[in-house]
Every structure is written in C-alpha cells, then in structure tokens.
Design a protein around this nucleic acid. Structure first.
Lengths: 242, 242
DNA sequence: TGCGTGAATTGATTGAGATCAAAGTTCGGC
DNA sequence: GCCGAACTTTGATCTCAATCAATTCACGCA
C-alpha cells in the first residue's frame, strides 16, 4: 500500500460489521459506516465443523465470507482423487474469488471455524461503488499470489525434509510473526492435510516430523502441538531462499 | 468482469500508447486518452535478447512494463541454485507487482522480446487516480492467481508424464484458445526452462517428450516446433481435472 | 477404566525420477 | 558449406519418496 490517498481507509476507524461483530475483519476493514450498515443487512454468521465444505470445485459462487475464527483450506482435485491444497486462509482473511461466477476450487474448514457469510451480489455491488474496497481486495489477491508463488518453489524444488520444515516455519510465523526465538503452536492441519499441502504422502510427512524431532529442531506433544526452540534453525532446515 | 459500470473501459476505444504503439496492450487497455498521453511521456520501448534480466529477486522495483512481444518467465531461486519458474507472461500482459517496493522474484525474457517500460512512480500515480486502472490490474492479479493454483496441483500431484503433457496443453491453448483439434506451435521455452517450470530435470523432460512422440500424442520438428494432432488426447494424458 | 475407531508411526519393499555419463543434433558464425 | 558450442537425447545406475503392511497411539464414549 504505497498510496497515501488510500491509506486513510486502513487506519483505525471504529467500524464493526453488525453480524460478525468483528472490527476490521476481512473485507470490512476498508468500509465506511454506510457500507457496513448496508452489508450488515445481508450477512449471516456461521459456525463450521472441521471438514465442512463452503464451496465446491465447479459450483456456482453464491457467497463470499470473512473468516472470523479458524483456518480454511482451498483444495483442487484430479479426476482420480489425487488432491492438492492450493491455499490456506486464516482469520481475518476475506474468502472468495471476485469477478468470477464459477469456483475452480473447493473451500473447506480445516479446523472448527466461524465465518461471516455475505451474498456475492451484495458485495459485488458495494465493490463496484468503492475503489477503496476494490483496493483492499486487490491487495489481498496480490498477497495470495506471492504466497502461491513461494509455495510453487517449495512444491517443485524442495526435498521432503525441507517441505515439512517450510510448512512448520510458515505456520509458526503466521501465528507469531515477530518471534524469531522459541515459539509454540497447535497445527491447524492433520497429517493428511499437511501431506496434501506439500505434495507428499502421510507416511513421508510423519517420518520427516519424527526426524525433525530426533534432530531437536522441533518438539511435539499430542501430535498437534509443536514447539520450535530456534526459528533460525528451522529456517535453515527449510532451505529458505537467501 | 461482472461489473457493467467498468466494462465500458474495456470496449473498443481507439487508444494507443505513443511509445509502444500498441493498442490496448497490458495496462493501457484501461486508460483514457489523457492518461495515455501522460504515461507516454515516460515510457520507453525496449528489445530484449533471450535471457535478458528485467528484474532481479530481492532488488528494488523501479519499473513496470507491458509485454509487446515474446514471453517473460518469472523465477525463484534457492540459495544452492535450485530454480523454479513460478509464472509465464505472454504479450500483451502487464508485468509488475503493484504496491510493493522489493521484488520477490526474477523476471527474465524467455524468448526474444519487446517491452514498453514505464517508471513505477508514474503508473502508481495514475493507478491511484483511476479505479478502472486498478480494476484492470486486480483482474490480472486474480487471473495469475488462478493460474498459479492450477500449477500447484500439477507440481504437487502429477507424474512427470502428466506434467509435460500439461505444459504442452497450456502452451497450445494459450496460442490457440479456440482450436480443440489439431494445433501446432513453437515452444517458447528450452528443455531446461520446461524442467524448471515443471519441477523436473532436463533429462526427464526429454524422455517424456520422446515417449509422447512415440505414443503419437505429439509430433516434434527441430526440437522446438510441436504439432498436437488431437488436443483431447493430450488433455487426457495430462490428467486434466474433470 | 476399558473399548473402539480413526489418526499417526514405523517397517519392508518398490519404483519413478534424479544423477552420472556419453553420444547425437541443431544452428549461428565464418 | 564447415566448424564449434550449446542444446537435446539416450543409456546405466542410484536414491528418495511412494507403496504396502502392521502396529501403536490418542481420544471420545460407554
């Protein structure tokens, strides 16, 4: 966001979406009070169980959503069932593909989640009348593109060990961007999901986790809780590009 | 582009960038005469030899460009030299990452190319004052994101055979989107570049090309010229998702 | 507290693609 | 038209991750 004219809309205006009661969540952060009031008339708040499908590959797109809580995975599937996770979205991301009528991917809750759902037509209308809103969406699309391209390097050129370390590094920095020292967190994905994210099998993910544990790069409790004593060490194993 | 208000700017207004003399090329397609006149004061047309670097990974971003002719590859590299192509841009795409000051990737001409280069600051200023322009860039970003995610499925889950077939299919449809029958074209990438695009080695790409030739899926002349007798057949081998 | 089920780990073996090595092609420059 | 360098193909072998196959573990529930 290099443009000062736009940045006033990202500063601390105390706006709240009536439905989600979230401040500056997802797309709402770029809205004024009037736009929020209009949007609020149509939004619905939903709790999602882990695994709940929000949008199917090939289906019509009827709604967008703000993610209030939890993690949503975006997946693509081949005819024979092979699957790849092509994106992870965390609260308070905006979820949806503007300017398209049909979804090219499946969106599914990876953890228990909460979303604020809004009809596509309503937001499309607001976006059409608000350059600030489109700017916000544009910025998110660019950020997602950067992430996707980073991940392409991981998928195409890293070893299994580096892939798993890269995944852990990504999750750790997402939940705790500042901390370059010891960090600990709950994995939002099962081993099967991690495998689908990394283009590996469950067994290989498991073996690499075991190896990282044996090498002292991570500690693991109850399968899901991970502690990283030294982020630099993890980054090194992940083969982070200089 | 679902929004009719915006679409008037994508219709046939006879605007031409003075420097590149291209009609509706890249970002110019969403500009009015005044904006074009302003931009034209600062644009420079450049011929690029194959392999010429436009932007380095980690460098400051000083310029954007419209691609007038040729193909530009976007690559990322690991510290030890492993490389991955994370995007291919064809004329008349716009080249550049708005709202960022440092490049996370290298942009390099894959073939002999021509570009219309413009200083970052000039276009940023125009974009700040023109929602239509931002809309155009937003749409391109979303299209690139869709492509990147398609490619992640290929990188993570397809076999070498399917990867090479997918690549050929992508190139064929790019140069000739309508034709679902026989098509022929020159490959814009060397075997080494194809390998970097697919996360494979040169040798594996070569072997798979040989196999596709043997199976009658493609014909190859002079290494670079490919004929596809039956696009459906190629799509099938590529394991295109249903 | 034990039971059952799905998730994760561990082990043995296989196989697709990488690596190492050596021709064979293509094409620009003289 | 010939030469040389870069690109491409082909061959032999190796290796990392996939596959096949048991266990083991975690956790909700009776």
């Amino acid at each position: 966001m290099d443009n000062p004219r736009r940045d006033i809309h990202n500063s601390e205006i105390p706006v709240v979406c009536r439905s989600c009661e979230a401040r500056h969540g997802g797309v709402c952060g770029a809205m004024n009070a009037q736009q929020l009031a209009e949007l609020s008339k149509y939004t619905t708040r939903k709790k999602l169980a882990s695994g709940a499908e929000l949008q199917g590959q090939g289906e019509k797109i009827a709604a967008y959503a703000n993610i209030l809580k939890g993690v949503v995975k975006l997946t693509k599937m081949l005819a024979d069932g092979r699957q790849q996770i092509v994106g992870l979205q965390f609260a308070p991301d905006f979820l949806g593909r503007p300017f398209s009528t049909e979804s090219s991917l499946t969106a599914e809750a990876a953890t228990e989640s909460e979303i604020c759902s809004m009809p596509k037509a309503v937001l499309d209308r607001l976006v059409a009348g608000s350059p600030e809103l489109e700017h916000r969406l544009h910025n998110q699309a660019l950020a997602e593109l950067d992430e996707a391209r980073d991940w392409m390097l991981t998928l195409g050129r890293k070893t299994a060990q580096e892939k798993v370390a890269s995944f852990l590094y990504m999750i750790a920095t997402h939940f705790d961007p500042e901390n370059l020292d010891e960090t600990s967190f709950d994995l939002p994905l099962s081993r099967a999901d991690i495998a689908d994210f990394l283009g590996l099998t469950i067994e290989t993910v498991s073996r690499q986790m075991t190896k990282l544990r044996g090498d002292g790069v991570i500690q693991v409790e109850n399968n899901r809780h991970v502690t990283v004593p030294d982020m630099d060490r993890l980054a090194e194993v992940a083969g982070m590009d200089v």
